[in-house]
Design a binder for these strands. Structure first.
Length: 811
DNA sequence: GACTGAACTATACC
DNA sequence: ACGGGTATAGTTCAGTC
C-alpha cells in the first residue's frame, strides 16, 4: 500500500536479534501511522596506511569468524565490505563491519585487536542517528511510502495505539508542505515541591478544542473546565485516558522533564498505578542527565523550557527563563497570580483561583509551543535529528549532529566521541588567548559609527580553513599563537566547507525572508545563524568529536588580526577609534559625512580576505564611556549609545544587570537617558538628588530595593558565605523550597548593632524591617551613577555629602 | 580591630 | 559535560600590623 507520511517519533527495537526502527507519524489525512524499517547495523574499521589489500581481505575473513557472547545474545559479524573512504580528510581503506545487533557493535569493536587496524569508528553514534545518516527517513519531511500493512502482533508489537502499521519497502521524499501536529500542553500543581513528598493536587490539559483541569480537591465550583475526582489515583487514571483520547503528536510541558513528569510518576507509583501514557501503553522512561529526560513511547514529549534554554533564549530579552517571563516576552501574556503560602489553608475561592492558575500555565505552554514550533521544526529538519532530541540538545550537539548527517557527502567516516580521560586531558590544557577588546577613554562622544564583522568567527573559520581535519604539523597556513604556531592545509576541509554552506544558506533565507516574510523563513534563517555562531565554540569544546584547540585558538588569533587591521585602516582614513570588542569597531565621524564612512567601508571590504565582511551596525548621535571603579581608566564592555531615532543602547551598566536592585537600575537608566539626550548632566544630577532625598526619607517602595541573585550551586558547596547564600539559608529554615538555579531575593536592612558584614543585614522580602539607608546609598545608588557624573567632572558623592553638611548646618 | 590583597562569586559582552 | 574567552565589580576571607 501507498501513503503520504511524516515521521515524528523515532525509537528502535530488536526483533529476532536484529535492529528495527519504529517511526510514528501522521499521514496527510491525519491518520496516525507506525512505520517499521530495518536497520543494518554497522561500524567501521580503518586500516593502517600500508596494509596490502590482500591482507585486508584476510583480516576481513578472520573478523567474520570471530565469535562473541555478549549479554547472552548470539551476535556475529554478518557481512564485511571494504571501501575507499576518507577520515579527517585523508584517504583511507576501511572495512564496513555489519553486525547482527547494533547494541553489540561497541563491544565487538573493542574485541577486534588486529595490528593492521588503526581505528574503529561510528559504534558510538546512536542507532537512530546512524539510521538517518545512512539514508533512513528524515524527521518532519513528507514521504511517499510503499510497504505492506502489518498485523497487530507482527514484529512483537502489541496494543500499539495507531491507525495503521506498515513495513517500509520504498520511500521517496515528497514536497515540503505544511504540517500541523496535534499538540497537548499540560501542567501540574502539587502541595510539596520535593519529588514524591506531596500529592498532585491538579493537572491541567490544553489543546485544540480541549481544556481541562483534573482535580480531587474542592469540587462544587462553577468552572466548566474543572473536573473532580474521588482521589489522586482516580485523577491520574483519568489524566491517562484523556491523553490517550486526545491522541497528541506532541505532549508539551514547561520544565516537565524536571518536575511535572517525574512528580506524576512518583504519584502514580505511590497509588500503585501505571502512568501508561505511551502509545504502546508504556510508562515514560527517564534517562539520566543534568536534567532527566522523559521519553514517552510514540509521542514526542517536549519540555519547552529545555529548547528555550539551549537554543531559543538568545532571542529573548528576559532575566530568567521562567514561564511567566518568557510568556510575557513572547506572547504578551502573564501567568495568573496565586499565593502559594495559602496552600495549607485553602478557602473555596482560593481553590477556584488555583484551578484557573493551573489552567493558565497549560494555556501559556500551548501558546508558546505554537509560537516556537516553526523554530523547533526547522532545527529538526536542518540538523536532521528527531524533535525529541532537538528539543533537548545543547548547541554543541546540534552542531555535531549537523556535521554527522552531512559527512556522507564528503565520504567521511565520523570521528569518535572523546572518552572521559581524553576529556579531562583536554580540559587541563586551560585557556587560550581570546578576543581583543579596545580600552576606551572615558567621555561623552558625539556622532559615532559602529562597524561589525558579519558572523566573524564563522567567517574566519571558513576563510582560513581552520578545523581538525585541516590541522597539520607544518606547511600550509601558519598561525602565530604566541608560544606556538599552528598550521592548516590550504585544501578546503569538510568542516569549513559545511560552515560556508551554512553561512550561504543563512544569507539566502534571510534575503528571501526580507522579500517575502514568513515565520518559516525566519525560523530557518535563524536556525542556520545559530548553528554558524556555535561552530567556533564547538571546535573549542572539550567534549566535541571534532575538537581542535589549535583551530579554536587560531580562529581567535585571526579574528584579532582582522579587527586590528581594520582599525588601522579606519585610522589611516582620518577617524579616531573610540571602542571595539571582538568583532565591532566604534569611531568618531569628526565632521565627515555618513556617505564618506560608507565609502570607506566599501573600500575596506574589497580588501578583506575570503568571506570576511565588515558591516555598518549603526550611526549614533552620542555615546558615553565611563571609567572603572577601581582604577582611573576606561572600562571595557560598559557603554551607552543614543541612535538617530532616539533609541538607547545600553551595555554592561548596572541597568542591565539583574543582581542590582531596581532602585539603582532605574535611576541609572534615567540618568543615562537624560545625559545622552541633553548632552549634559544638569537635570540628571537634580534627579539623583531627589531620589536620594526619597531614600533618606524612607519613601522608597520595598519592591524597588529587593536584590535578586542566582544560587548557582547547592547551599553547602559555597566557600564564601555571601548575602544571597544567607538569604537562601533563611528560606531553607522557613521550609521554603530552595534549589540550585533559583533567583534568591532579599534586601539589606537596618540592624540594631553595627555589624561590618553585609550578610549580617540580610532580610527576606517578607521579613519585617527597614531598609538600610547607608547601604542603598553607598552600595547601590552612588556606585550606579558616580562614574557617569565623573565624565562631566562632577563628584556626586561630594555634592551629596556637602548637601548633608548644609542640611545639618541649617538645624 | 582596622586594613589590604586574594579568593570567591555573579553577571555581562561578543 | 553537554560552545569559547574577556571583563567588571561586589563581598568575604585570611593574613598583616
Amino acid at each position: 500500500m501507498k501513503i503520504k507520511f511524516m515521521p515524528l517519533d523515532y525509537s528502535s527495537f530488536d526483533y529476532n536479534g536484529e535492529n528495527y526502527l519504529r517511526i510514528i507519524g501522521r499521514t496527510e489525512s491525519g491518520k496516525r501511522v507506525c512505520i517499521i524499517d530495518r536497520y543494518d547495523a554497522n561500524f567501521w574499521a580503518i586500516f593502517k596506511e600500508d596494509v596490502p589489500e590482500k591482507k585486508m581481505e584476510e583480516i576481513a575473513e578472520k573478523i567474520k569468524k570471530l565469535k562473541f557472547e555478549i549479554a547472552s545474545r548470539a551476535t556475529k559479524v554478518e557481512k564485511i565490505e571494504i571501501h575507499n573512504k576518507k577520515f579527517l580528510g585523508k584517504n583511507v581503506k576501511a572495512a564496513r563491519i555489519f553486525v547482527t545487533n547494533f547494541k553489540d557493535s561497541h563491544a565487538i569493536a573493542d574485541q577486534m585487536g588486529f595490528r593492521e587496524i588503526d581505528k574503529r569508528r561510528e559504534y558510538d553514534i546512536s542507532l537512530t542517528t546512524k539510521y538517518i545518516m545512512e539514508g533512513g527517513l528524515k524527521p518532519l519531511v513528507w514521504y511517499n511510502i510503499e510497504g505492506d500493512a502489518l498485523g497487530d502482533s507482527d514484529f512483537g508489537m502489541s496494543g500499539l495505539n495507531v491507525d495503521l502499521s506498515i513495513k517500509l519497502e520504498k520511500s521517496e521524499q515528497g514536497k515540503l508542505d505544511e504540517f500541523k501536529p496535534k499538540v497537548l500542553a499540560f501542567d501540574i500543581e502539587a502541595d510539596e515541591f520535593e519529588l514524591g513528598k506531596g500529592n498532585v493536587l491538579m493537572i491541567s490539559l490544553y489543546g485544540e478544542n480541549f481544556k481541562k483541569v483534573l482535580t480531587w480537591k474542592k469540587c462544587n465550583l462553577k468552572q466548566d473546565y474543572v473536573e473532580c475526582f474521588k482521589d489522586e489515583r482516580e485523577m491520574i487514571e483519568h489524566f491517562i485516558s484523556y491523553v490517550k483520547a486526545y491522541n497528541p503528536d506532541i505532549f508539551v510541558g514547561y520544565f516537565s522533564d524536571g518536575f511535572d513528569l517525574p512528580y506524576l510518576r512518583a504519584a502514580a507509583q505511590k497509588n500503585k498505578i501505571k502512568l501508561s501514557i505511551g502509545l504502546d501503553g508504556s510508562q515514560p522512561i527517564f534517562a539520566r542527565g543534568r536534567i532527566p529526560s522523559a521519553r514517552i513511547s510514540g509521542i514526542v514529549h517536549i519540555d519547552l523550557f529545555r529548547f528555550i534554554e539551549s537554543a531559543y533564549s538568545q532571542y529573548l530579552n528576559v532575566e530568567t527563563l521562567s514561564l511567566n517571563e518568557v510568556a510575557s516576552e513572547l506572547l504578551g501574556e502573564k501567568k495568573y497570580e496565586f499565593d502559594f503560602n495559602k496552600i495549607k489553608k485553602m478557602k473555596e475561592e482560593d481553590w477556584r483561583d488555583f484551578f484557573a492558575y493551573n489552567m493558565q500555565d497549560a494555556v501559556l505552554t500551548y501558546k508558546l509551543t505554537e509560537k516556537i514550533m516553526p523554530d523547533l521544526f526547522e532545527f529538526s529538519r536542518i540538523v536532521q535529528e528527531p524533535l525529541y532530541e532537538i528539543s533537548r540538545y545543547a548547541m554543541s550537539q546540534n552542531v555535531e549532529h549537523y556535521v554527522l548527517h552531512n559527512l556522507e557527502r564528503f565520504n567521511e567516516i565520523a570521528e569518535k566521541r572523546p572518552l572521559n580521560d581524553e576529556i579531562s586531558a583536554r580540559r587541563q590544557l586551560g585557556k587560550y588567548e581570546g578576543a581583543f577588546v579596545f580600552q576606551p577613554v572615558p567621555g561623552m562622544y558625539e556622532n559615532l559609527a559602529f562597524f561589525d564583522f558579519a558572523s566573524m568567527y564563522a567567517s574566519v573559520i571558513v576563510t582560513y580553513n581552520l578545523s581538525l581535519s585541516s590541522f597539520q604539523e607544518k606547511g600550509g597556513l601558519e598561525v602565530d599563537l604566541g608560544k606556538k604556531k599552528a598550521h592548516f592545509s590550504k585544501e578546503k576541509s569538510f568542516f569549513p566547507l559545511l560552515l560556508e554552506e551554512i553561512i550561504k544558506l543563512r544569507k539566502k533565507y534571510k534575503k528571501e525572508y526580507k522579500e517575502n516574510p514568513s515565520v518559516l523563513l525566519k525560523a530557518r534563517s535563524n536556525a542556520f545563524k545559530l548553528i554558524a555562531n556555535a561552530s567556533y565554540g564547538y571546535q573549542g569544546f572539550f567534549a566535541a568529536r571534532y575538537y581542535c584547540r589549535e583551530a579554536a585558538a587560531s580562529t581567535a588569533a585571526l579574528a584579532r588580526k582582522n579587527i586590528l587591521e581594520a582599525m588601522e585602516k579606519i585610522k589611516l582614513n582620518g577617524y579616531k577609534i573610540i571602542y571595539g570588542d571582538t568583532d565591532s569597531i566604534a569611531f568618531l565621524l569628526d565632521g565627515k559625512s555618513q556617505s564618506q564612512v560608507l565609502q570607506m567601508l566599501k573600500k575596506i571590504n574589497s580588501e578583506l580576505p575570503g568571506i570576511m565582511e565588515l558591516e555598518l551596525e549603526n550611526f549614533y548621535k552620542r555615546g558615553l564611556f565611563v571609567s572603572k571603579r577601581t582604577i582611573k581608566e576606561g572600562a571595557k564592555k560598559k557603554y551607552a549609545l543614543l541612535d538617530e531615532k532616539g533609541k538607547l543602547k545600553i551595555r554592561g551598566f548596572e541597568t542591565v544587570r539583574r543582581d542590582w536592585c531596581d532602585l539603582a537600575r532605574d535611576l541609572q537608566n534615567k540618568v543615562l537617558k537624560l545625559v545622552l539626550n541633553e548632552g549634559n548632566e544638569k537635570n540628571a544630577l537634580q534627579l539623583v538628588k531627589e531620589i536620594i532625598e526619597n531614600l533618606k526619607k524612607r519613601k522608597i517602595d520595598k519592591e524597588k530595593i529587593i536584590i535578586k541573585t542566582q544560587l548557582k550551586k547547592p547551599i553547602n558547596e559555597y566557600l564564601a558565605v555571601s548575602p544571597h547564600v544567607v538569604a537562601a539559608k533563611k528560606m531553607d529554615e522557613l521550609d521554603v523550597p530552595v534549589s540550585q538555579g533559583m533567583l534568591i531575593e532579599y534586601y539589606i536592612a537596618e540592624t540594631r548593632e553595627k555589624k561590618p558584614l553585609v550578610r549580617d543585614k540580610v532580610k527576606l522580602p517578607d521579613e519585617e524591617g527597614e531598609y538600610n539607608i547607608e547601604y542603598y546609598l553607598n552600595n547601590q545608588l552612588l556606585p550606579a551613577v558616580e562614574n557617569i557624573f565623573e565624565v562631566f567632572g562632577v563628584n556626586v558623592k561630594e555634592i551629596i555629602d556637602g548637601k548633608k553638611q548644609m542640611n545639618l548646618d541649617g538645624f
